[in-house]
Write a protein that binds this DNA or RNA. Structure first.
Lengths: 205, 205
DNA sequence: AAATAAAATGAACGGTGTTCAGTAAAACAA
DNA sequence: TTGTTTTACTGAACACCGTTCATTTTATTT
């Protein structure tokens, strides 16, 4: 029915309107300073309206979490053109860190905020987004092992170690635990630490 | 004057009473679920009383942040008995991760929560606690380099890389981003990834 | 045109951190 | 000992939060 289709289109547009406003405010002023009322003001509706389209604030955050993962995975897909698996691996790491540095609020939502995982637990689902991204890493690590770059045949342990490293660097930065370095040096120091790590894995495993 | 001394002692005791209650509730139910009113109920005072002893909730969190760092550094000091610097380094890493796994709320306060760093910024001070801990790591890395364990003479880059790795592992766990592994396996997998990292740094730098 | 359904409103609810006017208790001075 | 001053404490008020809901407005159906 034309009316039914139009209403569904309007519902999707309304959700997009809400999400766009939410994302904008989350990015501009952070999650803690962004309320449902702020988002409602931004789109010139009442706070109650938002609950017609999203179950609660957590669901809004979860949808943005998924969208953010899609963007990260799109970045990751750009490395698939690189033939050498080790080069692919280390470039993926740089893209990961760059994504975190350039999108601090989204990175927090993806990897540091409890809400999205709680949403998944409530729905008794799995963290598809995180698993997909981790699988991409695992796949490349497997190819590195097969190509003889890593001597120990341990995809899981190696993948987790590699992820932990870049995740640690990004998180230290986002939570401002780099004050032992001068202000202009902080991201370069972290990037340098990553290159140190690249040298490390290049030589031994 | 005896009265002045007694009043100062009572003030310190009152702060301890508040802090003990706060710590207990923060650990039992988490920071987000612990309010000033809850803490006041726990010590059977009114909420307003807490503001006679602490400027605000952030100051309370900051004091607990400092206390938590003292405990971590006490753990670190236990490794100073180990003669071999590489053994000392890797044991320190295990203690760090153990501290994080066993004290998730305190670890969050120390390394993931923004409030303590914001408090320091307001006071125009430096993150003494974090710097002291990082200096201990740097010291041991220097000794590893001097002993020939690491070939590249780069204390800063190596230290930051090492810290990022253990911090990444702990944070991935605390924020429940290990659901790609089965429930009983998660900490063992992270510990395994750390041992993988130990093998890695043992061989190359 | 009337009845029904859907969308939207904005105040209410129960909570938060923090402040403050008023009260009670302790300390000080006469 | 009494009156005054200072300090400690109370608990409601304030402005905010996420979410719900009684009511109104608008759109759809009959």
């Amino acid at each position: 029915m034309g009316i039914t289709e139009r209403k569904e289109r309007e519902k999707a547009e309304m959700k997009r309107l809400i999400m766009n406003a939410a994302r904008k405010l989350f990015i501009e002023q952070g999650f803690e300073k962004t309320s449902i009322r702020n988002i409602a003001d931004e789109i010139e509706y009442s706070p109650g309206t938002i609950y017609l389209y999203y179950k609660d604030k957590s669901e809004l955050l979860f949808d943005l979490h998924q969208e953010s993962f899609q963007k990260l995975i799109e970045q990751f897909q750009r490395v698939l053109n690189i033939k050498d698996p080790f080069e692919r691996l280390t470039t993926m790491g740089r893209y990961y860190m760059q994504y975190g540095f350039e999108n601090p609020e989204l990175y927090e939502l993806m990897f540091l905020m409890s809400s999205p995982i709680e949403t998944i637990e409530c729905r008794e689902e799995i963290w598809e987004d995180g698993h997909v991204a981790f699988d991409m890493l695992r796949q490349i690590v497997r190819e590195c092992i097969d190509a003889g770059y890593f001597k120990i045949d341990d995809v899981e342990g190696t993948s987790m170690m590699i992820w932990a490293n870049v995740h640690g660097l990004v998180t230290i930065h986002l939570r401002k635990r780099t004050t032992m370095f001068r202000e202009g040096e902080r991201i370069p120091r972290l990037e340098h630490a990553y290159e140190r790590f690249v040298e490390l894995i290049q030589g031994r495993i």
